[in-house]
Design a protein around this nucleic acid. Structure first.
Length: 457
DNA sequence: TGAAATGTTGGGGCG
DNA sequence: ACGCCCCAACATTTC
């Protein structure tokens, strides 16, 4: 064993202390010399983030700092390009190693390679241990050693591969060591925003509450008018809880709800795996055939109406307003608004994906963008292009009483269940202040199918 | 994790 | 009693 020096634990999207393999490694590398917990606010990621995303991350960092303070530590927060910030810190504190959970996204991969190289020049090692997934992307391969392109066979192989048990907290508490840098990004939550609670403790509480009713998940998950989803997505996105923990807790449950939920976790891992194998699929059509279709530019009034929740289609508007008000949107509604943008407004999925990533507190490149590709019919396992959601029918089916619409579209608060999903059909038209439909769904559906037919020939 | 168009069936009104 | 039509309900096909 060589000399013992402090180590740096560089947090990125793993903002927790429990079941954090990189933390365990950092503690063991540092001996008694101390672990410096670091977060770097990287302008490349901070820049494009919208107010809710920023506020959520900021709150999560503060929660992490508080948890560290319980053990006598403080989170070091610095701003700038990690390729400069991280080596500067290691030099300052004389650290011998930097520990991270591996990042499998295109930006993170490239960044980590540059940081690793810069650290090597000062003879500091860069240690990747663990990942934000139960099974690391790139691990699950088919019989011929290639990555899966279809979800179902992937998920079978993924389950068979299995995962570790959660690791818990370090056996002996870390000797934290600090350094200057307490410049937390602005935590102000803009007026009117109601964000989910952030942090490891909030994640834990939400998960335990969900476990109580996981058996209803298969039934309720498609109902935006109910609190039937887990709402774990922001916590998973920022690593406030690890999917291993969820999977371990679910192992006691054999019902349909738990099986369905495990499957949703598998989708998350599948999309991360796809992105790892095809980093370009975050921006480019996974299936290039659909890239040649005729689309409309995202500069129309209709696109603006979609972003702001003024399309005249109640369930679409409710979803888009929920997104801006809470940084989150129910998954069923995400599919409906996405279908509307791509099929009714003929706008390319990338523009919708960007809008989502700007506002969502759970916005994850792999899940978000591949979800959009699924809707656009251009992804792995994609929904066929001709599968066009009817926003009125979808609204009636999944929000039968209209409670979800009334919650987010106050102009429609007085409408009956019968009228609320099609307010323009009323004798005197939509109520004061609510717009008529921005496009005619039946017409635009035909238009979308025509354009599809064009590119298919 | 679609919806619309089209086809089929069967009950019931009615001459 | 019978044929005819309407149409709801359901199934199949197509995009």
């Amino acid at each position: 064993m060589g000399r013992v020096t402090p180590s740096v634990l560089w947090f990125r999207r793993d903002l927790r202390l429990r079941d954090n393999p990189a933390l365990l490694a950092a503690v063991s590398a540092a001996g008694g010399d101390g672990v410096v917990p670091l977060f770097v606010v990287d302008p490349a990621l901070w820049g494009p983030a919208g107010p809710s995303r920023r506020a959520y991350l900021s709150a999560s960092l503060r929660a992490l700092d508080e948890a560290l303070q319980d053990g006598g530590g403080r989170l070091v927060v610095r701003h700038g390009d990690p390729v400069e910030v991280v080596p500067a810190l290691t030099a300052e504190v004389g650290a011998g190693s930097v520990h991270v959970a591996a990042d499998f996204g295109p930006h993170g991969r490239a960044r980590d390679e540059r940081v690793e190289k810069a650290l090597a020049e000062q003879e500091v090692s860069f240690e990747r241990l663990g990942s934000p997934y139960a099974v690391a992307p790139g691990t699950v391969l088919n019989g011929s050693g290639k990555p899966y392109q279809v979800f179902t066979p992937f998920s079978r192989a993924w389950r068979e591969h299995g995962w570790h048990e959660p690791a818990g907290l370090p056996a002996r508490s870390a000797a934290w060591r600090s350094a200057p840098g307490r410049d937390f990004p602005d935590a102000d939550v803009p007026d009117g925003l109601a964000l989910p609670s952030a942090g490891e403790e909030a994640a834990r509480q939400r998960w335990e509450a969900f476990l109580e009713r996981v058996e209803d998940y298969a039934e309720d998950r498609d109902r935006p008018d109910r609190d039937g989803t887990s709402r774990m997505s922001p916590h998973l996105k920022w690593g406030e809880i690890h999917p291993r923990t969820l999977l371990a807790d679910l192992a006691d449950h054999t019902g349909k709800g738990a099986t369905t939920y495990r499957n949703e976790l598998a989708w998350r891992e599948f999309y991360a795996d796809v992105l790892w194998n095809r980093p370009d699929s975050a921006r480019e059509y996974y299936r290039p055939e659909l890239a040649g279709m005729a689309y409309d530019p995202p500069t129309t009034k209709a696109f603006e109406a979609w972003q702001e929740g003024r399309t005249g289609y109640p369930v679409v508007d409710a979803g888009m307003r929920q997104l801006r008000a809470t940084g989150w949107m129910h998954n069923r509604v995400r599919m409906i608004v996405a279908s509307f943008l791509v099929k009714d407004l003929h706008v390319e999925w990338q523009h919708g994906a960007r809008h989502f990533l700007h506002w969502l507190v759970d916005g994850d490149l792999a899940s978000n963008n591949h979800g959009w590709q699924w809707t656009a019919g251009s992804g792995t396992d994609a929904s066929p292009f001709f599968r066009v959601f009817n926003p009125t029918t979808q609204g009636r089916k999944f929000d039968p009483a209209g409670d979800y619409v009334r919650r987010w579209v106050p102009e429609l608060a007085d409408l009956s269940a019968k009228e609320v999903h099609d307010p323009s059909a009323r004798a005197d038209g939509p109520p004061e202040g609510y717009p008529p439909p921005v496009v005619d769904h039946a017409e635009e559906r035909r238009e979308a199918l025509d354009r599809y037919e064009e590119v298919r020939r």
